[in-house]
Design a protein around this nucleic acid. Structure first.
Lengths: 225, 225
DNA sequence: AATTTATAATAGTATTACTATTATTTAAAA
DNA sequence: TTTTAAATAATAGTAATACTATTATAAATT
């Protein structure tokens, strides 16, 4: 993970702050590699421990279980996207142009402009696309939600909703449109790659399918071009 | 499951046809109860076997694993929705009205008009909302897809896409809009209930939030009212 | 140098996912 | 009406997973 970009992740999500030790940092970094490689259900703390040359029990001293580790990673990612918004929107005045930039960031398979860490980020985005729904489609959603585990996601959603309201103040569903933009960015990218018949990817000419689809969708709803 | 409504589910999904024996039918019916009750990750064949008074090994004679059983249930559901389209759209001529009816069926928490089986169907819909993404967001998506496990979902998507093209022939993303409608119907319903801050549910007046949001969305994109 | 304190490793357990083998029932053939 | 075979289910396992209590070791403090 990028040393220059440290966000304080909700302390409810870990037992011992992984940023506070070398082992902790290794756990987070290598878990991103392994989850991307194996998928979340095949990923285990045993395999992770073996990979970084430690023991299962040591990993458990940082995270209660792999689900908590996933939430930690997702929280980091959502904070990172919020930061990307901050950086990339500052120069843009028009709310419409700002929203298009938001779509660009959300549909970008690999976030732009961070050189040597891009490789890790790419894996992170893959994890977000494939595994993030497994973080909230769970039995104990209520307790997890009470621990503020989805706060940065809600904030991201709220940031986008505010932009939407600037463009169309009388629109009744700014938050739903925002969460739909985020979720659709993920699953259309996944579908285009793995279940292309659920998309129109095969007869598309542009270079970023998801971005083009979402742009048309959002422009239609908020009536601008 | 309703005896009057039997769809032949893809035989790749089971080892022994569950419709061919009493035990098989029990496995499917009670698994819907249990998955709804425990959630898919807590659901096991052992618990299911205990519930219906058989053994784990006997359940394994019908389904390779619980993931296959989930796919079987989802296939049944998608075929059922396709059937609902057939029944409920036949009287409607206008493509626009037909699409609105599609949205109504997709956002309906409990499908209409089947009396005594509605209770089971309600649980089925809950499972589809909560667990269906776990069926395709998996490492072995390629092999599963090759076995036609998502055929009825793709067909459903194609049916909706055709309707969209009738309304707006030059629209470039009919399949993506169709899959977005289906997926959004599910996750907005889930969000409204479990993570309401990702929606505008709290200040909504209508009785079917998801339907109202989706209707506005689709009408904007295909420009009709 | 002695003693906390922090941290990690050992060695387990209960549960899960799955299977090979055996037993029992059902049905068809002799 | 037996005999045989085919279908089906139960017994009894294994390997892996998720997790924990306890012990050992290293670092820091007094």
């Amino acid at each position: 993970m990028d040393l220059l970009l440290q966000f304080k992740v909700n302390s409810n999500l870990y037992l011992r702050d992984p940023e506070s030790s070398i082992l902790g940092k290794q756990i987070v970094r290598r878990s991103i590699d392994l989850i991307d490689e194996l998928g979340f259900e095949q990923f285990t703390f045993k395999k992770l421990a073996l990979e970084i040359g430690t023991t299962e029990a040591s990993v458990y001293r940082y995270f209660e279980n792999k689900h908590r580790l996933l939430l930690y990673i997702l929280n980091w990612y959502w904070s990172y996207v919020e930061y990307l918004f901050l950086v990339h929107l500052q120069g843009i005045k028009s709310p419409k142009d700002r929203l298009i930039k938001v779509l660009e960031i959300l549909s970008e398979p690999l976030p732009i402009g961070y050189g040597e860490v891009d490789f890790e980020k790419k894996k992170l985005v893959q994890i977000v696309i494939k595994e993030s729904s497994k973080a909230y489609l769970v039995k104990d959603i209520k307790e997890i939600n009470n621990e503020e585990a989805f706060k940065p996601y809600k904030e991201l959603c709220s940031t986008i909703a505010q932009l939407i309201m600037e463009i169309k103040p009388n629109y009744a569903y700014p938050h739903s449109l925002a969460s739909t933009m985020i979720e659709t960015a993920h699953h259309q990218t996944y579908f285009a790659h793995h279940l292309p018949k659920l998309t129109d990817y095969s007869n598309h000419k542009g270079k970023n399918y998801t971005f083009d689809f979402l742009t048309h969708l959002v422009q239609s709803i908020l009536n601008f071009n």
